[in-house]
Design a protein around this nucleic acid. Structure first.
Lengths: 304, 304
DNA sequence: TAGGGGGCTTAAGTAACACTTCAAAGGAGG
DNA sequence: CCTCCTTTGAAGTGTTACTTAAGCCCCCTA
């Protein structure tokens, strides 16, 4: 394998016409350059330069090799330029994960701003349930992912590097004509007599209800198990019961319901950005995280 | 400037999917490969590989750099192939010098055989007078040159590296009807009474005549000064006088003259192949010299 | 004809660096 | 749970890309 540095020296000697000139250009001693060229020649097994009384003149082999060197150096310059493009975020790609409730509210804002700021970065988003997100993080299908947790099932910071994006409060959904619909804030303790609509499949919001009800001293009576928050809101709107939901999940409010704050009487979930500890992050990922946190800071009030 | 070896390692890791595999291919320890890759990454300032639980996955930058590396390696392979072509004499060029009398007789045989043997080598021949040939040798306009000398003006072997090609005897040119025309050989001593035709411009053959006549005990009478050997032969053919000439100069014999050997009564000139001592010679030059000496060995009898 | 200078090369030394070995850590899989 | 596989870090070593110093060759000048 030919050594690039030596090739570059050869090229400069060919172009400048003397070892001394090439040595000056590289801030080497002429001796060093001479030695390198000699090595190159013995390596190749052919003379590359004719020692003239004044300077050097390339042989056929020298000319050919110098020409190839020019192309090789051009290629290397192109490689470096491409890398600079990637580093400068004029190029690159990024795959991230999210869970559905954020994918329908907060994340589109982030994506929109990110795309405006870094139009050249290719952005892929995968929306999945919590367990799948964790798996995709682990096997590298996504470089980073939005996750969430409650205070009773905190994600282990040893598993992933975590950055808190914002706190997503739990809100109360009541029908427009419900006795509490006009209230700004209620306490869980006021809701002991209500019928509840929850999400099925052991959805985490069920546990939120159980825990906050239990803290308020009652056991909730379940009237309906919904498949998603749209269905839950619909049921609430016809007066079948009331429901709890993360604030971000009901940004797209059903017209027949009202959203009421629960203050600190219900636990809030933490929305996190997670990536693997051992994963070095590309510039595009750093940029996306910055945009995401910025958007969180700017819009977080909307979700409280 | 990126280091090729490291780039190659990166490429192999990208292609083989793990450091261990790349290390095995290069017969390195995995640790060494790991260190080189890390250096490459810090040098570039970007991550190139994602450390997965099983093996490595390239980042955008890694992919781009690996692709460039492929092209660079291809280019280097092409360079090496070209060098091999030159070394194998499937390519190359060669410039040599000659003096006119050989250019009209011996050299064409050499060129013809060389071209048949190495059709891919570009061959340039420059024909000049002795002094110009020496100058062209010195300043590199020709890589090697045919030269000649007599025993009284030997070329200094310190000036050039010399190889004797053959001895070029001095022959006698007489008219077809001359009294000596049928003789196989004569001695200079038999020619004291003759009129002589010589070449003008202090041509070396004049000194040959002076010296051999003086050695034979007479002073030659000059009847005509010719410009070249064709003119000299023409003058001889009409009986204006007789002449001396190197044997090779009269290979193209005038129909009206006879060539008679002088045995050792006239000095012969040495035909030499010369090149600069300090000049490393390309494969094509070595090949040409070999052909030239071979042709000399095969045809030398013709010039005696 | 000696003296000076430019250009290249050799010899010897030095400092960087590409590797090694050894050891440890983290996961994957039996 | 233990073992294997892969990667990484620390420390050590041999190579090598350079340096300086000296010499050679050629040319130019006084």
């Amino acid at each position: 394998m030919l050594n690039i540095r030596r090739l570059e020296l050869l090229l400069d000697v060919v172009e400048l016409g003397s070892i001394t000139a090439a040595a000056e250009k590289h801030v080497y001693s002429p001796s060093g350059v001479s030695q390198q060229l000699r090595r190159l020649e013995t390596e190749i097994g052919q003379p590359l330069l004719q020692r003239q009384t004044r300077g050097m003149v390339p042989t056929d082999a020298g000319h050919v090799l110098a020409a190839h060197t020019r192309r090789i150096l051009r290629q290397m310059a192109a490689a470096e330029a491409d890398l600079a493009e990637i580093a400068g975020l004029h190029r690159g790609s990024l795959t991230m994960g999210t869970f559905p409730t954020l994918g329908g509210s907060f994340l589109p804002l982030v994506i929109s701003r990110f795309k405006k700021e870094y139009p050249a970065i290719e952005l892929h988003v995968r929306s999945s349930r919590f367990e799948d997100l964790v798996e995709m993080l682990e096997n590298g299908q996504v470089g980073m992912s939005l996750l969430w947790d409650y205070e009773w099932n905190r994600i282990d910071p040893g598993d992933f590097a975590l950055t808190t994006v914002f706190e997503d409060a739990t809100a109360l959904i009541v029908g427009k004509d419900h006795r509490l619909a006009r209230r700004k804030q209620v306490d869980m303790a006021d809701l002991a007599a209500e019928e509840w609509i929850v999400r099925g499949d052991a959805h985490p919001v069920v546990e939120v209800l159980q825990r906050s009800a239990s803290a308020a001293g009652f056991t909730p009576r379940i009237a309906f198990q919904a498949n998603d928050y749209q269905e839950a809101q619909a049921m609430v709107s016809v007066g079948l019961g009331i429901a709890l939901a993360p604030r971000t999940a009901v940004v797209n409010k059903h017209p027949g319901v009202s959203i009421v704050s629960l203050g600190s009487s219900a636990p809030s979930r933490r929305v996190l950005l997670a990536h693997r500890h051992d994963r070095v992050r590309a510039a595009a990922e750093m940029a996306f995280q910055a945009t995401l946190l910025q958007v969180a800071k700017d819009t977080t009030a909307d979700f409280r």
